[in-house]
Design a protein around this nucleic acid. Structure first.
Lengths: 326, 326
DNA sequence: CTGAAAGCGCTTACAG
DNA sequence: CTGAAAGCGCTTACAG
């Protein structure tokens, strides 16, 4: 692992422009406390440009004691379509504060080498819940303030809202379609818990739960089994829109009409949701709320980067997108 | 931006365990050239644990001259469903080599502050084409070797393959369904170019192209206009599976039967592809090929991190997933 | 207005 | 087997 590129340093720039390293630094960082003659300034900038000089980040950070880097940690199970928007808004907000946003995506347990060995974020944004011990320890390893997003509460809240919607429309019997993906079991449990909780509160029977695979034949079979257990009419709360698509396909393959015999409600409002037959009723995060939330979150991050104590941020709120399937 | 946490340094550990900083480093890095008495070793480790000592990454990197960090740069337009798999495989492969993988996702032009000010990747993986000037300059700013993935060729190749499949099955007339997303225009142009190229080679008429929005009413209207331009039967090559879903919905809303009157072929093989009505025929990257490719790519990255010259890697290959829509 | 010097935290020859 | 010392590249008081 030798790398003898011969890095270009500020010493090189100083030599090339006939000044000291201090002056190079003053010029390049536009230090307002120094008065550099424009001619010298120009000479330094020119030399830096010609040599292709880039300050070596680790040296700067070592000197300063901190970086302007925010690392978002995203477990695979949290990857979902709403992320593109969140990511963009976060990044633009942080850029305004001169912070860079980068992502760690994946499986915290794979690593003998922790990324903190090569990376010094000023703040870590964790997608998930602090009560997830693996995620929590992965994230704490950075010894930086941690801002949590997408905590457990949202999971339950979505389940509750799905039931509310179905119950309001007169559905008395509720079932839950769970995903096959194993990495997402925790989230699915939570969702189901929210569904079950609300059923109890409303005096409905406890919901039947069934794993509905995304493979079409698997979906058909799963829905068949569900139908053997519980007779239509019933309302089906799906873990997310993908599972809802599988449920719709399985119901169609079993000759069940949606929403006449079975109502189906998803979650996420993926772009394809309006394109299913029938178009999918689903749950989405409230947009304006989202914007306010992100602003708050960024202020939060800034505060954390200054070492100020963190308070629990307001949770994301959530609404029904009404289409045809429920 | 003061941060006076009082960082715990190797000096603290040395003091606490009554040895020199050198010894602390030897113990914690398991230097095989040193013979440390087990007792001393234990004392040092204990002290480090109790103090919660973590070596400060920038100092290590400054000393070493390089980091073990690979940064994948992903423009928004390149975000697609196949990424989850690629990401996971890349990360696991790199972890084995003791490299960490992190992502930069987004819009290179937003930044006055370039992430390289806070980050020193050993290698950059760029998703896109070196002939994209914005991406190229963003990525070169890191002054690290750059490995390119997903170059232009793949775009054309997919278009060609879609046409081949339709032509083999007797479709004489070809149309192209483009996405509405503007950030993806470049890729869409390329795809269309591939489609058009193959049509010419096969002696077919030049393909009609139409933007098909993902909103259901928009999709219906767009397909309506397309049908006014070009009468069924024809084969419809779609930019990706999402556009294909919109096309299927639009065709259904216009009373057109798939695949009898119009054949539809997508791209990506997203999980939902098999769940449409009819199930979607589409294009996917060959799986075993993908694995070989990733292995090669990782070897490539490793070579790059040693400063060895890069050669053009083999491109990804691609196949038809046959279902019902074409 | 400019430069010599110190120091951020780490690792590793080198001397003992 | 252990420790004192040098040096990675940067910024910034400080002296002139």
């Amino acid at each position: 692992m030798t790398r003898e590129q011969g890095r270009i340093t500020s010493t090189d720039v100083a030599r090339a422009s006939g000044v000291s390293r201090a002056t190079v630094s003053y010029v390049l960082n536009n230090d307002p406390r120094q008065t550099i003659p424009p001619e010298t300034r120009e000479r330094v900038m020119q030399a830096a440009r010609e040599l292709g000089y880039r300050p070596f980040a680790p040296a700067r950070i070592l000197r300063a004691g901190y970086s302007r880097l925010v690392l978002a940690v995203l477990p695979f199970e949290q990857v979902d379509p709403s992320l593109a928007r969140v990511s963009r808004d976060l990044e633009v907000g942080l850029a305004r504060l001169e912070f860079s946003l980068i992502w760690y995506v994946g499986v915290p347990d794979v690593h003998e080498i922790h990324p903190s060995a090569n990376l010094t974020p000023a703040v870590v944004i964790a997608f998930g819940s602090p009560s997830d011990p693996e995620l929590a320890s992965f994230v704490n390893e950075f010894s930086a303030p941690v801002v949590w997003m997408r905590d457990h509460d949202r999971g339950k809240q979505i389940g509750r809202l799905q039931v509310d919607h179905l119950a309001e429309r007169g559905w008395q019997c509720i079932a839950f379609a769970a995903p096959e993906r194993t990495d997402v079991r925790g989230l699915a449990q939570l969702r189901l818990a929210g569904v079950a909780e609300r059923c109890t509160q409303l005096g409905l029977e406890a919901p039947a739960a069934k794993i509905v695979p995304l493979q079409r034949t698997g979906a058909r079979a799963a829905i068949g089994e569900l139908l053997a257990n519980i007779a239509p009419p019933f309302g089906l709360c799906c873990y997310n829109d993908e599972v809802a698509f599988a449920a719709l396909a399985g119901l169609a393959d079993n000759g069940i009409r949606v929403p006449d015999a079975v109502a189906v409600i998803g979650c996420d409002d993926i772009p394809l949701a309006q394109l299913s037959t029938p178009a999918l009723t689903t749950i989405a995060t409230i947009q304006e709320d989202m914007e306010r939330l992100l602003e708050a979150r960024i202020a939060h991050i800034l505060a954390a980067s200054r070492g100020e104590p963190l308070q629990d941020p307001a949770p994301e709120r959530v609404m029904v997108i009404l289409r045809e399937s429920a």
